[in-house]
Design a protein around this nucleic acid. Sequence first.
RNA 1: GGCCCGUUCGUCUAAGGGUUAGGACGCAAGAUUUUCAUUCUUGUAAUAGGGGUUCGAAUCCCCUACGGGCUACCA
Length: 510
Amino acid sequence: MNDRKVRVRFAPSPTGPLHMGGVRTALFNYLFAKKHNGDFLLRIEDTDQTRYVPGAEDYIMESLAWCGLKVDEGIREGGPHGPYRQSERKEIYKEYAEALVKSGNAYYAFDSAEELDKLRHEYESKGENFIYNASTRSSLKNSFTLSDEEVQRLLNSEESFVVRFCMPDNEVVTENDIIRGEVSFNTGLLDDKVLYKSDGMPTYHLANVVDDHLMEITHVIRGEEWLSSMPLHVLLYRALGWSDTMPRFAHLPLILKPVGKGKLSKRDGDKLGFPVFPLLWNDPFSGEVSRGYREDGYFPEAFINMLAFLGWNPGTEQEFFSLEELVENFSLERVGKSGSKFDPEKTKWFNHQYLIRRSDEQIAEQFEAILKSKGIADYDNAKVIRICGLLKERANFVSEIWNQGYFFFQAPTEYDAQVVKKRWKAETPQMMKEIAEFLNSVDNWDTAPLKEAFSAFVTGKGWGFGAVMNAFRLCLVGAGIGPDLFDICNLIGKDETINRINRALNQIRL
RNA sequence: GGCCCGUUCGUCUAAGGGUUAGGACGCAAGAUUUUCAUUCUUGUAAUAGGGGUUCGAAUCCCCUACGGGCUACCA
């Protein structure tokens, strides 16, 4: 059993865009698989026809691809254990549902949803819990209480039925979760879960166990919301005679809201202004658009790095990990037990760190698309690369480089009123005029010599540097921001520098 | 309500019986930058509460509180 090849699966249901919590589950599955030279499968759990959302399946696959999580077996990749879409495996589940009935581990039930609902309310009003299990099943409509003939008649009729698991009474099921250790449940408190629905589809529980077995899954790594289903699943493996090859379980802690209580939801993103989905999502029903990390300008590497640290840590002080390094260092033992609040600020910081580590050329490539969107087509590629190098320290995203350096590409059209008030004095226009004349006489426009000549000129005039430089910057930039002024002069060129001074002289009024 | 899981700075976390409880984000201050940002330095701030066990407990046990998940013919 220990020599089995590690095989894990990520098994989302296509009910909408993949939440970042889902991406993290996929990530941990992927990391665990690759760490152990195993396989990472993608299985689509679309057994609930009513919740199917067109496009969600492609969205899931595109998200994993963007994150660099390569799927070994799945609906696109194929593989020896297909199909990998549960709706295409209906016949398989039916077979196992029947086998469970035959072996006495499951039974047919004919109670309608309305009848059950009514019962639940009755119990509730008495302050009690209704549980469909050993305590109640003998008084309900099922193959325990009905005669064989009646059951056969109902099964052959139009009457709908479900298959329920026969939960043993008062037995303690203990299972060793890799993250949580031993967890015990008393089956007397559990209910006879529906395994097979009246629409001919299995429920999650049956489909999941059957597929994990058939696909030779060795480790089930999933969210904590499944922890309470663990005893049912353990019992199903037993009932099906698969205990020997039952996978190990690892239940991941949840990702919580940045502020307030509860798990992270789409609402939080809207409210606090950050994406909760990896990719932009266009809801086919409501037309509503949800932001995505990709479209917001995050690097997948930064997104993944941040996600990995939500619940996992390497135990060292290293905080930047490539996907390969994560694979190398990952272990489920170092995954925490408690939920983690998501921190959008730290996510930005991660992106900043990845941005400054990128080469200027790579950044320039992305930035050029932004330039085009701003209507700037005529630019010198080498200069753009230099500009990106100058500005990347100041930005969290490539897109912010524009706000940090628009003035490299277009002259300011307005002048920051606050800066004007503070830096543009009565004597300033005269100084600027003289500076323009001086600059016109400068031949060597390289940054360093220009700076040197300029300093000599200002010193010779006996002017204060603070007054000159800030006013000069206002002329060139229109505000009190930006990198070294002589870098700006050099990059925009001599003529443009002088033009901008003249322009400011015309436009700035006290 | 019932069952299960959890609880270290505001946040992510380290420390798995003996540390001045460490790091990171954030925030604050100082330095550098004649701008702004960056960068650097420093500071800020935590073992939920109460009982045990022990020479010694953030670490082990119990209780309480709080948080979370599940409690569907949803996953």
